[in-house]
Structure formats: structure tokens, C-alpha cells
Write a protein that binds this DNA or RNA. Structure first.
Lengths: 210, 210
DNA sequence: CCGTACGGAGAACAGTTGTTGACTGCATGG
DNA sequence: CCATGCAGTCAACAACTGTTCTCCGTACGG
């Protein structure tokens, strides 16, 4: 199929990456639906027409950005959430994961939180799909715990959704108020703890598992 | 100051409202940062230059939209969250409030959830401000419950934030999958129930109120 | 009842946008 | 080694953008 070095394809993916990087940087101050094709190519240092060699439209580039921002996150999620130990240990790991990721890839995080409810349908759907995968992975890990005995599949998923949404919300707060990261992560930890307590007592209620 | 009838001011606010309505409709398919001034005036049926008689820029109009979308919501929140009765009663009321509001003002809800993390700073800040007020109001109501005895102010706020975020997330899900409103509201109810359980057992932990 | 202030229309401006077609140079594969 | 394919450039296009300045009609306040 493709030769290993491929001087040709290497150059192509290089400028493709330049387009993605330029777009991501421009998106720090605006939404994808207002991002112009020429704007991106100008920032990437290539001619406007060359854009079409890589993407059909800016929407298309947006979908590729979703893959770049979220695709490589699955292994990290898995290893973090499947940590053994008490709840506090897991919470600390999760918070560290979020803070570290926001710190390492702020533009990616901003892009995802912004376009999750943004004005470009295909991008929204791509993000929603990836988050659905995350939710399923978290649910799988949660189901393996002893506390989840007797839980319905749907309830484990609703719990996982709670966690995933909380993590995204926390990431967004960390982005906006970078100077308050201590307070934000402390609140997030307490919210996770409270959810964990609710989880532990879920089946105490008469219709808890209904 | 202003005469009661004011044929002049009435006409002005009429076209001002036409601008807001037109913008809101156009925003169903795009983000605010890509909304053009001419686009809005065209949809509102007035000349582009007349726009400046009402707003200094599209950003400005966006901030006004935040006020329109969220400003009138405070009394509803207050009366809903201060319902007396057991937790289930309150949860049902809250879900009804959300579903009813999304059904009655879908464009407003879409605007808020989209621009909450959108690309226009002043609008983001206006939304954040309003949501902060909501959180404070919910916190006040929660603090009045017997279960909140011994809670720190900060913890009541973190609980309120959890509820507010959950309500917004639910509203957004209701918007996207209008056909699944039953499933979505059932999951949301269970999430609120779980949070309520965590709340009830919060002080069971040795360092719960720390 | 009249002068004025104000909401709105119109024309014009320099820029920018997405997309097209034809062209160039070079790595590739036979 | 040569012909092909493909990344990238350039020029041009009609359409659109935000903003300014000038003008018009009319409700308003004295």
C-alpha cells in the first residue's frame, strides 16, 4: 500500500498537520463556524487553493480535529479509571489526569468544550460519538467494582455519564480561570466524592435498582 | 424620564426585538462569532446601517440575548427549587421545569448552551454571570433544608453547581434528541436522585464537612 | 406650531470570502 | 530513465462583509 518512508506522503501530512495546528490556534478566539478557509491557509503559510488537497471544507477539518483531540485519549482514560484502590485514590488520579491534560493541550480542550455544543453539526456529532465511547469505557470500569453489584446496565451508564460530564465541565473551568486551578480542582474532587457516596448508598433505597 | 405610551420608543423597541428575534433564529444553525451584521438586518427587514441605532456590534446584541434568555428565568428557578415536600417531589418539579422550558423556548436554550463555551468572550462572561446567580439561588434554597445542617458554605455551593450543570446538560440533550425526551428525563431524574443520596450521607464520612 | 432630535434608508468604501481553472515542479513506479 | 500523478501556486471571479457619511420623514418638547 504505502512505502515506509514516502517522501511524498511525509510532506503531505506535514502541511496537513500545519493546517490543523493553524486552525487550532485560530480557534482560541472564535468558533469553528466562523473560521475561514483563507484564514487557515494564511496562518499555515500555504496558498488557499492547496487547502482542498487535504480537506473538502473547514467542517471536514473540524471533524479531523476532533479525532486528533479525543482519539488519543482513550488509553489514558482506561488506565486512570481502572486504578485499584479506594475511591479517594481514584479521584486524585482523575483530577490529576484532567489538570495535566488541560495544561498540556489547552487548545485541544478548548476546541472540544467549545464545539461540543457548537454551530457545526458534523463536528458536534463526532464529539458526541467520542464522548459516548468514553462513557462506555468508564461504565465498564465502574461495573467491575464490587459496589456495582445489583446495578442495572442503564444505571451504570447514567453514573458514568455523570462522571464524564463532570470531568468536561471541570476541564472547561480550568481553562477559563487558570489562576484558580486549586479551588476548581478541590471543588471537582468534592463533587466526585459526593457522587461516590451517592453511588455507595444507591441500593439502600427501596426502588434504587428499579 | 420616558412617557408612558411613547410612540417613538415603542417603534424602536419593536425593531430592536425584531433584530433579537432574527438573530436568535439565525443562530440555530451557526455560532454567534460567525453571525454577520448584514445577515441579521436582512432577516429583520431593515437596512444594515439601522443596526447601529440599537447595538454597537453583534457582540453587543449577543449580550442582550443573554439577558433575554436567562434574565426572566430567576423567579421560575426560585419557586421550583423552593418546593416543599420530599426529594422526589422536587426532582419531578425540576424535570418538568426543564422539559417545559426547552419546549417553550428552544432557541433560547440552544443559544445559551452553545455560547456558554462559545468564541465571544463578553457573551461567555454574561452567561457565566447569570449562571452564577442561579447557582447562588439554588444554594440558598438548599441551605434552608434540614439535611444541610453542618454544611460549609463552599460545600453547599459545590452541590448547587452540580445541580445547575446537570440541568443545563439535560436541557442540551433534550434539544438534540427531541424524540428521546422520555429516556433523557428519566436518566436526569436518576442522576438527581443519586446526587440527593450522596447529599444525605455526606456528613457520614469522617472528613465530610472538612 | 415650529425646530429639533432621532430612527431609518441609501450609496459608496476597501477588504475579505469560497471556488474555479490552468499551470509548475518533483517524487514515484514501471 | 522516462512518463505519470499529485502537492502546491497563481490569477481571477462574483459575492459578501463592516463601517462611514449623507440624507429623509416624523414624533417629540417647548
Amino acid at each position: 500500500m504505502s512505502h515506509l518512508p514516502g517522501v511524498r506522503q511525509a510532506r503531505k501530512q506535514k502541511t496537513r498537520q500545519a493546517l490543523l495546528d493553524a486552525a487550532l490556534e485560530l480557534l482560541e478566539g472564535q468558533s469553528l463556524s466562523s473560521l475561514g478557509l483563507r484564514e487557515v491557509t494564511r496562518a499555515a503559510g500555504i496558498a488557499p487553493t492547496a487547502f482542498y488537497r487535504h480537506f473538502r471544507s473547514v467542517e471536514d477539518l473540524g471533524v479531523a480535529l476532533v479525532e486528533e483531540a479525543l482519539g488519543s485519549l482513550h488509553p489514558m482514560i482506561r488506565t486512570t479509571v481502572s486504578t485499584i484502590g479506594d475511591g479517594e485514590e481514584r479521584i486524585a488520579r482523575a483530577i490529576d489526569l484532567i489538570v495535566g491534560h488541560v495544561d498540556a493541550y489547552p487548545a485541544h480542550v478548548r476546541f472540544v468544550t467549545r464545539e461540543r455544543h457548537g454551530g457545526v453539526r458534523p463536528v458536534r456529532e463526532a464529539i458526541h460519538g467520542q464522548l459516548g465511547l468514553f462513557t462506555a469505557e468508564v461504565a465498564e470500569a465502574l461495573a467491575a467494582d464490587a459496589v456495582s453489584a445489583g446495578w442495572s446496565r442503564e444505571d451504570v451508564l447514567m453514573l458514568a455519564q455523570l462522571y464524564v460530564d463532570l470531568m468536561l465541565g471541570t476541564a472547561s473551568l480550568l481553562l477559563e480561570g487558570a489562576r484558580e486551578w486549586e479551588r476548581v480542582s478541590r471543588v471537582a474532587a468534592r463533587q466526585m466524592r459526593l457522587i461516590g457516596i451517592g453511588r455507595a448508598h444507591w441500593l439502600d433505597q427501596p426502588d434504587g435498582g428499579g
